[in-house]
Amino acid sequence: MSETAEAEPGDLAIATTGLTKRFGQQIAVNGIDLAVPRGAVFGFLGPNGSGKTTTIRVLLGLAAATSGSARLLGHDVPTRLREALPRVGALIEGPAFYPFLSGADNLRRFDAADRHADPATRAERVARALERVGLTHAAKKKARAYSLGMKQRLGIAAALLEPRDLLVLDEPTNGLDPQGTREVRSLIRAVAAEGTTVFVSSHLLAEVEQICTHAAVMHVGSLVAQGSLDELRGTGSRVVRVITPDGDRCVSELAHLGLEVGPSDLAAHRAGDAEVVAPLPDDGPAAEDVVAALVRADVRVRGFDVERPSLEDRFVALTGEGFDVAR
């Protein structure tokens, strides 16, 4: 966690200090310190209503922070946003379009709004963005006739009209079927491979876990964890799990190996079997040596396992609720 928090400000695509947003009495975002390293695919996770969209609105200058400060691509928000925004593509709280315009005309319209976009290359860039999200065939169709999944992809195409340094995607897989979700994931991978920092919010951990290098977890407006995925999983928190009829002998043999078994970690498993769980430090013995030692000590091993707590476990612990609350 410390690694990203201490990085030079110039290395951060997004940096906030004590960022707070109130709506009347309600605190939607409560003093968060975000640090999104450049080049990262950063998962911004949290249940519905935890303040993700509000944070994104403040970062992009749509809403004013109540207190705290933020920098986007090294530029102060909101005073220097004009310099940052042309380098940022965004999908915010779902896509939005002019229903009476075609998909391609919608993209042209948003491109014309960007005072830095070159009209001479507009047609070409619109065609390329549509192709990238697989909508070339629907370019001339009115946006009102698009399905939810097509709209989501058109929204991503709008964010990709220009080469970007930062792509902000708020719940990009909302409303997509599993196939569409996979497509969005591979699109994010491709964009990230070009060096673009991707900041992707989601209330569904499983949908972004595979593509993220970093993540942060929001819980009722507060940032409860942030860092690289390994940092978040908690390095050194691996555990060995042994299922054996020889519980006591197993515990003492593990103690020989330097693995402390807490009193609560020796539990009855099934008739006659005990389940022994012990933390396995990173500098501890290799898993295969533990099994060999147990067998030498005549501990009959019925089951053996080394596990890391899953991110899901971590997040349930952090937010006190599952990540699927919305479903």
Binding site: L60, G61, L85, F97, D114
Partner: peptide, 18 residues
């Protein structure tokens, strides 16, 4: 009400210009 205002502003269109 279309929701397009947020996309015009982050384009960025500039509020005064818009």
């Amino acid at each position: 009400s279309l929701g397009t205002l947020r996309y015009l502003l982050v384009a960025p269109a500039g509020r005064v210009r818009l």
